[in-house]
Each structure stands twice: as structure tokens, then as C-alpha cells.
Design a protein around this nucleic acid. Structure first.
Length: 346
DNA sequence: CAAACGTGGCC
DNA sequence: TGGCCAAGTTT
């Protein structure tokens, strides 16, 4: 990209978007002056943080079917919302989602702020999400920079500085590309381009609407950009976890603390997760049986191996089977349940 | 500000 | 198989 070409590149991008925008439940068609509801834009953008479109689709549909307005979501029970979010990951998003919904519903009459600066003051809304909502719902020419935009811009300008050091330069370039007209469609076009053509590996430059403006392509380095500093190796942690079921089928569950990993979600009791296999520490006295297979799961920053114990036991605080939906568990706990359920006596 | 924070798909 | 990656935010 050379100085002065930004307008032409932006026009080519919007033209491509008008012809090929992907259909998504939270989108209205490009152009035409129609805007999706701020509530839908906000909900979809929070769900899309570090999460693929394919994973978000059904969650978005379930949330909007169950809670059609931000006031409905604000009035929901915490446990209902956490259960509906289960499996989508990054559970702090769900906790902040509820906090934000309650601020908007109860302190702002159900109306979202209309500027990126004000949006960013709300829980769970950072620089990216604030800019995206402002641009898509309110046509503010905010500079929207997510992982896709970083990649597209790094290639268009052949920026070789590794991330995260390159971030300010990438934002500056993205700003040059952001138009005053249709900034919301421009932002979505950039992200769609990154998701479908200017992909991390194997970019399909032959189909790219802005290939003629790309500095990385003639250099043969498009697929290598953006460069990134190598990530630290993930350690492995170990734990014991206990699945107790009583004669009526009720299950021993606990609500995890609000803060930290899987915060606010349901799970089975167990030991802390440590660098070496901890000593067994059953939550209640019972005839515990160790399963022959362990549960393996990888989080963002460590691998986890869980030794699963099962027992038929009686006790207080068991959740009746009718009230226990495995789908309300975070994925690692659902893996534990799936393994344990198969080992329990019928 | 580096680290914490989930999960599923892809190669 | 295991590392990389995805429409990031919080502390």
C-alpha cells in the first residue's frame, strides 16, 4: 500500500463486501442504511471475542430467543446465564455480560451508549468491542482492530515488526483505511476478508479484492505476516476429581468461585491442580473407584490431566438428576462427566 | 504490562 | 499428536 491509495483500496474492499458478505444471525444486509439492534451487535461481539463464527452462531440464537431484549437478559438469574454460556469458554465474558446488561437496563433505560469512548467504560467492553459496536450499530468511524485486521494490515503494508510490538503501527495504518462513510460495513469487510481470504495460513491472494494494493504479496511474504514472538511452552498440571451419585441419581456438584479459571461455573469437587499428581482427597467418605482412563484437557496456558474417581454415595447437597444438565458444565467438566457416567452402575 | 483466561478446528 | 489460531479483556 502506498500513500494515497487508501481510498481506492477501501472502495475495492466495500465493493467486495457488497457482493459477498456472509450471512450471520446478528447481521442485516450490507448497505441499505439498515442497522442491527445495538443489543444484538453487543451480544455477538462479546461472543466473538477470541471465538469463531461457527462456534458462536447457535449460542447467539439461543440467547436472543431466550432473552430478546437487554432488559430480559438483565433480569435473568446468574446461574441461568452461566449455564447458557457453558461450552463457549472465557467465562469472565458471561459474568461481565450480565453486569453490562444490568447497567444498560437499570441505569441507562435499556439504551447502549452510542460512542466508542462511552461503550468502553462498560464491563467486558474493551477497545476492539467498543469500536466495533460504535461502527456497526451507530456508524461512528471508529478504528476497529481485531486479529483479522492486524493480519490484513500487516500484509497490505508489509509490516515485519513482530506482534505485540507492531500493534500501534497496525492501528495507525488501520486508521488510514477507515472511511467516514459506512465505517461499520468497512469494519465487517476487513474482518470477513481476514476470515475467508487473507487467512493466517494459505491466504488466497488470487481472490483478494485488494491484492493490487498489497505490499507483502510481491515480496512473497504474505503468509508469514504478521510475525509474532514465540509463545512460552505450556506446562502440564495434574489433579484428582470426584463424581459421586446417590441411589436416586443425584449428583455432587459445586459452584466454582467467581474469580479465576472457570469462575462461576458448575463443576465436580476435587484437588487443586498442581505440577505433580496430588494425593487423593475425596470430598466425602465413600468407596471411591479410580477410573482407568484419565481426562485430558488443554486450557489457554496449561495442559491438564485429571484422575477421575467415581462412587455411589449418600449425602447432603447433592443436585437431583432432573436439575442437572451436563450441557450446563464447562467442557472440561463435561468430559469428566462423560467418562464417569459410563463407569457408574446402572 | 505480562499473565490469566476456554474451546474446537485445522494441518 | 500437538501447536497454532479465532471478531480480546482484565488485572
Amino acid at each position: 500500500m502506498r500513500d494515497g491509495e487508501e481510498t481506492a483500496a477501501g472502495a475495492a474492499l466495500i465493493d467486495w463486501y457488497d457482493r459477498s458478505a456472509r450471512v450471520m444471525p446478528w447481521r442485516v444486509g450490507p448497505g441499505a442504511g439498515a442497522h442491527p439492534a445495538p443489543y444484538h451487535v453487543w451480544l455477538s461481539e462479546v461472543m466473538l471475542q477470541q471465538t469463531t463464527v461457527a462456534a458462536v452462531r447457535d449460542y447467539f440464537r439461543r440467547f436472543t430467543a431466550r432473552w430478546p431484549r437487554v432488559e430480559d437478559l438483565a433480569a435473568a438469574e446468574d446461574a441461568e446465564v452461566m449455564a447458557e454460556w457453558a461450552g463457549l469458554g472465557y467465562y469472565a465474558r458471561a459474568r461481565n455480560l450480565l453486569k453490562c446488561a444490568r447497567v444498560v437496563a437499570f441505569e441507562r433505560g435499556g439504551r447502549f451508549p452510542q460512542t466508542a469512548a462511552e461503550l468502553q467504560k462498560l464491563p467486558g467492553i474493551g477497545p476492539y468491542t467498543a469500536a466495533a459496536i460504535a461502527a456497526i450499530a451507530f456508524e461512528e468511524p471508529a478504528v476497529v482492530v481485531d486479529g483479522n485486521v492486524e493480519r490484513v494490515v500487516a500484509r497490505l503494508w508489509a509490516i515485519e515488526t513482530p506482534l505485540p510490538a507492531a500493534k500501534p503501527a497496525l492501528v495507525e495504518k488501520a486508521g488510514r483505511l477507515t472511511p467516514q462513510l459506512r465505517p461499520g460495513d468497512h469494519a465487517q469487510a476487513m474482518m470477513d476478508l481476514g476470515a475467508t481470504i487473507c487467512t493466517p495460513r494459505g491466504p488466497v491472494c488470487a481472490l483478494c479484492p485488494v491484492a493490487a494494493f498489497c505490499a507483502a504479496r510481491p515480496l512473497g511474504i504474505a503468509a508469514e505476516l504478521p510475525r509474532k514472538v514465540p509463545k512460552a511452552e505450556k506446562p502440564t498440571r495434574f489433579g484428582c476429581i470426584y463424581v459421586a451419585v446417590d441411589a436416586a441419581g443425584a449428583v455432587l456438584l459445586e459452584r466454582r468461585p467467581e474469580k479465576g479459571l472457570l469462575g462461576g461455573m458448575l463443576g465436580f469437587p476435587g484437588t487443586p491442580w498442581a505440577e505433580t499428581t496430588p494425593a487423593p482427597a475425596p470430598p466425602i467418605a465413600a468407596d471411591w473407584v479410580a477410573l482407568s482412563h484419565e481426562v485430558r484437557h488443554t486450557f489457554t496456558h496449561f495442559h491438564l490431566r485429571l484422575q477421575v474417581y467415581v462412587a455411589c454415595a449418600e449425602g447432603k447437597g447433592f443436585t437431583p438428576r432432573a436439575e442437572f444438565a451436563p450441557a450446563a458444565l464447562p467442557t472440561v467438566m463435561r468430559k469428566v462427566w462423560d467418562l464417569a457416567e459410563g463407569a457408574l452402575p446402572a
